[in-house]
């Protein structure tokens, strides 16, 4: 059997139809979890056979902010923190579109925190996929709104003294209709949650805890990205539908994963449309 005939039977990597191949390999570091999240998201699109003419992928600034540029879809890279505000404009202007925001913890919860809570409050239909690596990676590993107390970063060189957000708790309290947390290790469960969230109408939120082997995990002597993933395997527990307020996220003890919220609430663009129709009839 010749080499050529053997190779000709090989299929393409199944997710590549959703990816801008001319942009690969991507910029993410070895063992960074962002790539795994993109892989899970693309796998979910594939298993849902999602109509990509109805999706807009949007991200903010930072490592995860580069995510939108890798998808063969209508996609937009906003300024820092504004992905959700942009997504709101997209959804309201054309309700047939499903905005998906893929961004980082600093982008979504520090500079973009206000947009997050208000889009969740309004229940604007979008999926927000947050890669949480506990620091600002793109700028060199500064502390952010999710950095744990006492963690070392370049702007908390003597240990962080700020209290971090618990993202799933913020999302649930703000009114998100679907809230989940996984780690990059839970790639298949993450894919399932993304599938579920994409089929829901409303503000859905998934946090993915991810290694940052180049910065955060190195500063805090967590070892390689692989060792961080092994640690996730050791300390993560799945508690579906437990109280997100109690969903612990502590690298020393336990990371509570699972789907915490799955509820129904009228969606904003639907309400807007209904409101408009009523007024147009002259009611």
């Amino acid at each position: 059997m010749t080499e050529t005939s053997r190779i000709s039977t090989i299929e393409e990597h199944p997710i590549l139809e959703y990816i801008r191949r001319d942009r690969l390999p991507h910029i993410f570091c070895s063992a960074c979890g962002i790539g795994t999240v993109l892989q899970s998201f693309a796998t979910a699109l594939r298993s849902l056979n999602y109509d990509m003419d109805n999706m807009v992928i949007i991200s903010g600034i930072g490592c995860t902010g580069r995510a939108s540029g890798y998808f063969a879809a209508d996609s937009y890279h906003t300024t820092h923190g504004r992905a959700i505000a942009f997504a709101t404009g997209v959804k309201v202007a054309n309700p047939k579109l499903k905005p998906v925001v893929i961004s980082g913890d600093g982008d979504l919860f520090a500079i973009g925190g206000n947009h997050f809570i208000h889009a969740a409050r309004r229940n604007v239909d979008m999926l927000v996929l947050c890669v949480n690596n506990f620091n600002y990676g793109m700028t060199g590993g500064q502390m952010g709104p999710t950095t744990p107390v006492s963690a070392i970063t370049v702007t908390s060189p003597d240990g962080n003294i700020e209290h971090p957000f618990n993202l799933v708790s913020v999302a649930a309290a703000s009114g998100a209709v679907f809230v989940a947390r996984w780690t990059a290790l839970h790639a298949r469960r993450l894919t399932k949650s993304i599938e579920k969230a994409l089929q829901k109408k409303g503000f859905t939120f998934i946090e993915v805890v991810s290694p940052c082997p180049t910065l955060y995990d190195r500063y805090n002597r967590h070892g390689t990205g692989l060792e961080v993933m092994k640690k996730y395997r050791e300390i993560s527990v799945i508690r579906n539908f437990s109280d997100p307020m109690q969903a612990e996220i502590d690298y020393r003890t336990r990371i509570v994963c699972g789907e915490f919220v799955d509820s129904e609430k009228p969606e904003f663009s639907d309400l807007l449309e209904e409101h408009g129709k009523k007024l147009q009839k002259g009611d």
Binding site: L24, T36, Q39
Partner: peptide, 10 residues
């Protein structure tokens, strides 16, 4: 397919 799902680099 766990290897496929977990690979960050496709």
């Amino acid at each position: 397919k766990l290897c496929e799902a977990i690979c960050p680099d496709f």
